[in-house]
């Protein structure tokens, strides 16, 4: 397992509900059952413990350890209620599997009765159920994502041409701060599904997001973001039709910003957007015509060596 897959497995344990992984087939005994009968039930079903029920209420748990004590005392005809544990810790079927894991750790028991919202016994959970549940969920998640990636990659392979590109176009509305970043988010997801190196994806996402935010913040009527993906590079083109940048050279200086205070209060207008794009992309071209609009093009190469990948220490 790679570290990412381990992380995914941990996340799944948090998402898994006890009700989804518990054993529902309930075999129970009454407090008056003899330990001899318990021995038979455990053996027949190859299990190591049983809930003890009286009138549909859980009153205890009898386990193989209790059976051993009865055997040692030569009391196999004793009733279950003399040997069972009656202080029973339960877990809810809606709780996360992680709650059960910590309960197993604390209580030192091998099984936990699972109850519904009304406190009725609905199943039983063992550490083995959790392992099986996580493995099943992991397999499901893996297959879903692999299938998606496989389909997207095949689109490229099945199309025959001298140069195939995928072009994604996004409309960027002006001053819509709740939706701002949506285009870059969708672009990023697409690149991940195409199976592109995560470090390249991150760089494209940063370039595209800064460009998108510039349109959201500064344009008069909104603009467009276009990403072209081919086998060699990813090009991000961002353009709008005004107001244009008065002084392009000044705009490329770190910290230079024309953003008003209310934009800064939202976390933007640090005067680093264009600087970040230039530093993150392999190539950047910026053209602007006052009152007519701005066009920014940034290129990131997919092959190592052609692009910048390293980091420097501040």
């Amino acid at each position: 397992m790679t570290p990412t897959e381990v992380l995914k497995a941990q996340e799944l344990v948090y998402e898994l509900k006890i009700g989804d992984i518990m054993t529902r087939r309930l075999i129970t005994v009454s407090p008056e059952t003899t330990m001899r009968e318990v021995k038979q039930v455990l053996r027949d079903h190859r299990i190591s413990g049983l809930p003890v029920m009286r009138d549909e209420h859980l009153v205890g748990i009898v386990s193989i350890e209790d059976l051993i004590r009865a055997l040692e005392a030569n009391e196999l005809d004793a009733e279950v209620n003399t040997y069972m544990s009656s202080l029973v810790r339960t877990v809810g079927e809606g709780e996360s599997a992680v709650r059960a894991l910590s309960a197993f750790g604390r209580a030192g028991v091998g099984r936990l009765p699972v109850v519904d919202d009304d406190g009725r016994l609905v199943g039983i959970l063992t550490p083995g159920d959790i392992t099986r549940g996580v493995l099943r969920a992991l397999e499901r998640a893996y297959h879903e994502e692999e299938l998606r990636k496989y389909r997207v990659r095949h689109v490229f392979e099945d199309i025959a041409s001298d140069r195939t590109s995928l072009i994604l176009r996004y409309d960027i509305p002006v001053r819509d701060f709740n939706r701002a970043g949506r285009a870059s988010s969708q672009l990023k997801q697409t690149l991940v599904r195409l199976g592109i190196d995560p470090r390249i994806v991150r760089r494209v996402a940063i370039v595209s997001y800064e460009a998108e935010m510039n349109i959201v913040i500064h344009s008069t009527t909104g603009g467009n973001l276009v990403a072209e993906i081919n086998s060699e590079l990813i090009a991000v083109l961002a353009y709008d039709s005004g107001p244009g940048i008065e002084d392009v050279k000044a705009a490329m200086q770190p910290g230079w910003s024309t953003a008003p205070d209310w934009i800064r209060e939202m976390g933007f207008g640090a005067g680093m957007g264009l600087v970040n794009i230039k530093a993150t992309a392999d190539e950047m071209h910026l053209d602007s015509w006052p009152r007519r609009g701005t066009k920014l093009e940034a290129v990131i190469y997919l092959k190592p060596g052609e692009g910048k990948t390293g980091h420097e220490t501040e």
Partner: peptide, 16 residues
Amino acid sequence: SGLANPQVVRTSEMAD
């Protein structure tokens, strides 16, 4: 961050 708006989340998404 002391910034409590959706853009801090978007930024985080972009930068992993």
